[in-house]
Every structure is written in structure tokens, then in C-alpha cells.
């Protein structure tokens, strides 16, 4: 299964972190730090694998992809295929790209819950749920629609906060 998904920027700030087996927050922070430590020392144009067993324990592998200012990191065990996981990162990023129209780090920063919504449609409890970004988009749009609809009931605070943000 997939153990964790992380998005870390090139300065080492976590932008998204999801652990599919419960970890105390301190542990999460430690993991993210050590992963970043390894990733930041790797050159460009090398393989996308990192030995993760020293960080996450036995039978764990890690693949990552580097897009602009972000590292997308998947940690998983022997029941997943390494290349398929790389494809899955691609699916995730493509979906985000569709979602935000040319996704950039700022989108990832500002859309915390949307990021999770997308991710949850792709990976479910550590298992690959959906690999087609079109399907994922369909589900995500539906969810957003319902969210907006349920929020519309309380128009006042919404509009006020929108005004405040201006």
C-alpha cells in the first residue's frame, strides 16, 4: 500500500502531507525533514528512487518527482510497482493542473482542502483508487459543487469574508 504522500517545496516547506498510517505529528515532521534532506542533495537527471528504509523502516520505497519548485513524494511498500507510482504522481499532477489551470506552488499553498479532495479521489486509504484524471476531475467538481451549495445557505459571512479579502 501507499504509506504517505508528501509535497515539499525546494526550501523544505511541506505543502501537503498525508500519512495513510497514523503517525504522531512530531514523527510526521521528522519524516518530512529527513525526506527533504535526502531529496535536496540529489542532482537533477538522476533516478527518481530514494532508499527510504532508513527513514520509514523496512519494506518501504520512495519515489519522487521534481516539478518547478515542488517535490512530489510517494512512499509505499512492496505491494506497489515503482514505475506505476511514478505514473500515479503524474496523474496527480495532471489533475491538479486541470483543476487550477497551470498549477503552480501558490495554488497548492492556497487550496489546502482542494488538494486533499483531489488526492482522496486518487488514493483511498493507501490504495490506488482511480488512475484517470478525467474521472477524478468529475468527482472533484461534484464535491465542490455540493460544498458551495451547502455554503450558500449562509450567505452573509461568505460575502463579508469575500469583501474583507478584497
Amino acid at each position: 500500500m501507499i504509506r504517505a504522500v508528501m509535497v515539499i517545496n525546494t526550501q523544505g516547506k511541506p505543502r501537503l502531507a498525508k500519512f495513510y498510517e497514523f503517525q504522531p505529528v512530531e514523527k510526521q515532521q521528522e519524516h518530512i525533514r529527513s525526506v527533504y534532506g535526502v531529496l535536496s542533495s540529489r542532482a537533477e537527471n538522476v533516478s527518481n528512487f530514494v532508499d527510504a528504509e532508513s527513514i520509514f523502516g523496512p519494506d518501504t520505497r520512495l519515489v519522487y518527482k521534481h516539478f518547478a519548485t515542488l517535490y512530489f513524494v510517494f512512499v509505499f511498500d512492496s505491494s506497489e510497482n515503482e514505475l506505476a507510482m511514478l505514473d500515479l504522481i503524474q496523474v496527480f499532477v495532471e489533475t491538479l493542473d486541470k483543476c487550477f489551470k497551470n498549477v503552480c506552488e501558490l495554488d497548492v499553498v492556497l487550496n489546502y482542502s482542494k488538494m486533499h479532495t483531489v488526492l482522496d479521489e486518487i488514493i483511498f486509504g493507501g490504495q490506488v483508487l482511480e488512475t484517470s484524471s478525467t474521472e477524478v476531475m468529475k468527482a472533484v467538481e461534484e464535491i465542490s459543487k455540493l460544498e458551495t451549495a451547502s455554503n450558500a445557505i449562509s450567505l452573509v459571512p461568505k460575502s463579508v469574508s469575500a469583501w474583507r479579502n478584497r
Partner: peptide
């Protein structure tokens, strides 16, 4: 509660 609501920061506010 309305007042609270009015002046509460949302997640977006927090991030910004």
C-alpha cells in the same frame, strides 16, 4: 455568534 463569524479568519485568511 454573528459577530464572531463576521470577524473570524478563514483558512484562506490564515494562509495569506
Amino acid at each position: 455568534s454573528l459577530m464572531e463569524n463576521l470577524f473570524q479568519r478563514t483558512l484562506e485568511d490564515l494562509i495569506k
